[in-house]
Design a protein around this nucleic acid. Structure first.
Lengths: 188, 188
DNA sequence: TCAATCGGGTTCAATAAAGAAACCCATGCA
DNA sequence: TGCATGGGTTTCTTTATTGAACCCGATTGA
């Protein structure tokens, strides 16, 4: 049984997970971000078995997240580092790390802290709205149907649901609009 | 071979992944966030096999991410929903979704858009600094050794590296301080 | 009255992936 | 000559994932 791929799912989260969803992969990306670049150092730092590290690095390279550069010929020795797409994953990783800090911090305290070079402060990663810059919580987020809402796995039920909800809301709005037209000036 | 657990790792990311690192799990959490709450709807929306969905829901409940509520007795029927810790995962999920939008958007366009109820705009999730509110990129982040930097898998090499780097920086700073003391007023 | 359907699972066999440990190989170095 | 180093590959065993079939109490419809 081959594990079902998320690659064809009609969903950006699934496509992100296709790359980052594998066991170990986010930890590898984090280590590369922190400047660990040699195979043996990665294996030692994480305690991952070497054959699995080989496989993960290969798929990360295939997916355009990691690149390798030869730093010594004969025998060939490689340094691994993040591509542009890989570096763009770092903020998302920090967001999950911040969740771990809030809900599952190790008893001894966390081994890493982060400083924002721009402002100079130690910080927590927060997820914020691109429009108003305020911190986002689940309660503030409404989902809307997008342009590509097909009936494929990944959004089978959701797409239909959202469409129904939109129609219901639009009907309700039409109704209240009519009511306001009938008795004008009255606040809704 | 039992898959190595991340739970004992000295690292908040690993602890986040212990909960969210399983294949399918983030998609399940997203569906619960979007209001899908019944077993069959989850199975249909995602195309996940039913026994695996059973297992995932059980471990999510064990980890305090999901709760279930009985909505019909005899036969018992359950609705699943996110706990407080589960709802707090949503921003991190949105951050990864935003990465997928940037680097792996489906050709047909994304099936979902999100509106920030607070400001009323459609938005992209951005990861920002808790101190200065600016968007964070990998280039702006410096790692510092934290209070719990032990030599355990997950931060074996990193902890040592960071400590060395810190010491080197402090030595350099001491040196320049001495130099500045010797020829005062000269810019460094 | 009988059959079909629904919601929420469990069981089963087959296949894929994770894991530890051993092995390989060209070079550098003592 | 012998050992260490870096970067893997091979082999073999144990788990995980998968589709498909099955189960069970209630409800609905003919």
């Amino acid at each position: 049984m081959q594990r079902t791929s998320f690659a064809r799912m009609q969903c950006s989260l699934a496509r992100g997970l296709e790359v980052m969803g594998d066991w170990w992969t986010p930890l590898i990306v984090r280590d590369l971000f922190l400047g660990i670049e040699k195979f043996d150092e990665l294996a030692e730092d994480l305690g991952i078995s070497r054959n699995l590290l080989t496989r993960r690095l290969r798929t990360l390279i295939d997916n355009g997240i990691v690149e390798k550069r030869i730093y010594h010929r004969r025998p060939a020795r490689y340094a691994y580092f993040l591509s542009e797409a890989g570096r763009d994953l770092v903020p998302a990783i920090l967001a999950l790390t911040a969740w771990g800090e809030r809900w599952a911090r190790p008893a001894e305290g966390s081994p890493l802290r982060f400083r924002h070079a721009v402002c100079g402060h130690e910080f927590e990663a927060e997820v914020c709205c691109s429009e108003c810059r305020q911190t986002i919580t689940a309660d503030d987020v409404e989902a809307l149907p997008g342009p590509g809402g097909a009936a494929k796995p990944g959004t089978m039920v959701i797409a239909v649901r959202l469409r129904e909800r939109m129609i219901a809301e639009m009907l309700a709005r039409t109704k209240t609009t009519k009511e306001t037209e009938n008795n004008e000036g009255e606040p809704t």
